Simulated assay, not measured.
Amino acid sequence: MPNSLNPLELIARRWQPSARFVRRAALATVVMAVVIVVTGGTVRLTESGLGCDTWPKCTSGSLTPTSDMGIHGAIEFGNRMLTYVLCAFIGLLIIAARARTPVRRSLTRLGWAQFWLVMSNAVIGGIIVLTGLNPYIVSSHFLLSTALLTVAMAVWQRSREGDGEPRGLVARPVRQLTGLLVGSTLALILIGTVVTGSGPHAGDAREVHRIPLDWQEITQLHVDFVYIVLGLTVALWFTLRAVKAPAAQRRTVLDLLAVLLLQGLIGYVQYFTHLPEVIVGIHMFGSCLVWIAVLRVLFAQRERPALAAPAVSPTGDDEAVQPETSPAPEPEPAASSR
């Protein structure tokens, strides 16, 4: 009976989104995952980390910032409100994936994974405020945002594939080299959070506890890993060229190399100009682009075919029910984020 249907089933009976709509909804979650990282960095770089001095309210007596809190309260509260915008995009993705025929269970599961990651990070954000910007918790906040971006990229990739078993497109040694590249990039990002936790931008004008390490020495370690990732990227490109891998796979590696070189240049500029806030913010945005580029390299090395050709939808919308096999290249999320 219709009354026994859950809301998602009711929507599915009345709306059949196209495959393109689902892909765009998935891409929107990637963009928003980057936006939430950049705005979170803005909170720290403008010393607005304690602009709202409690959580979940902004003050003990007000849900929103008061006029005497100034710009810092507005910036911190604005970042909190972006969480709801991100959840709205994720909700749209889940609804669209559920309403589409045939149902893409893989997409809805990944969409719910995004939602719970956002909720977990919101709680961690509250703990950060309640602990006075504890640097270790701040680092975990950024790492969880990276996990969110990873799942969002996986959803976007899956929205352009079928639901068949994944098939590797490269030999095992190439996959191992790629795995080493992915792991080294993760280490690079992790060390970057330690630089942030020990560096001069504490997130508030008042004295804030920092990670008790020499941030310049940690920065040097960070730079060392940049060279490791660069070397692995170049090695992977030559390997793919030697085995005559498809041009699309080699192109993702070249894209990663370009992003790494640009990010490295920004890193040197921020270091020798004594970490100006704007350049540091651009560097945080660049870290998202680096991780997106690495994931694109990884995803390009396998494919998922469609399970089977489903019947035409009763609505007559052929696009809504055709399997997605080897779709044309989509715009890069990096370009969409700018």
Rank of each mutant, 00 (worst) to 15 (best):
P310T: 12
H141D: 12
G111P: 04
R160W: 13
R206L: 07
S198L: 05
R20M: 02
F77H: 10
E207C: 01
W15N: 05
Y271M: 05
Y227I: 13
V31S: 09
L298K: 02
G168S: 15
D317W: 02
T131M: 11
Y268W: 14
A311P: 00
T150R: 13
G70M: 02
R13S: 15
C52V: 03
F238M: 03
G197M: 07
G192R: 08
I127L: 13
L254F: 12
V234A: 15
L130K: 13
S287M: 14
G61I: 02
A258P: 00
L261D: 08
S62A: 11
I218V: 15
I266K: 12
W112N: 04
R105W: 14
L130A: 14
V174L: 00
G40M: 02
T39N: 10
W112R: 05
Q249G: 00
P2D: 12
V151T: 12
G179V: 10
I127P: 06
L45P: 04
V174Q: 01
A99E: 08
S337G: 07
S313K: 06
Q157W: 15
P166W: 05
G51L: 08
Q263P: 03
T29H: 02
G70W: 03
Y268V: 10
A245H: 02
A97L: 05
L260C: 11
I11M: 11
L230A: 15
S120H: 07
V174N: 01
R20I: 00
L190N: 03
I228E: 04
H201E: 03
G197L: 08
V34N: 12
L260F: 13
M1H: 13
P7V: 11
R80N: 01
E161P: 00
F89D: 02
Q157E: 09
A248L: 04
G73H: 06
I90Q: 03
D318V: 15
I94N: 02
H201A: 06
F142V: 02
G49L: 07
I282T: 09
V34E: 01
I228Y: 02
P246Q: 09
P323S: 12
D163F: 03
A334H: 02
A12V: 13
E217M: 03
L213I: 01
T83F: 05
R250F: 05
I36L: 12
G126L: 00
G132R: 06
P331K: 03
N134Q: 14
V253L: 11
A308Q: 13
Q16W: 04
G267S: 09
T219V: 05
R158N: 13
L307P: 01
G41M: 06
I75K: 15
H274I: 01
P166V: 05
Y268A: 07
I266T: 14
I11A: 15
I127N: 09
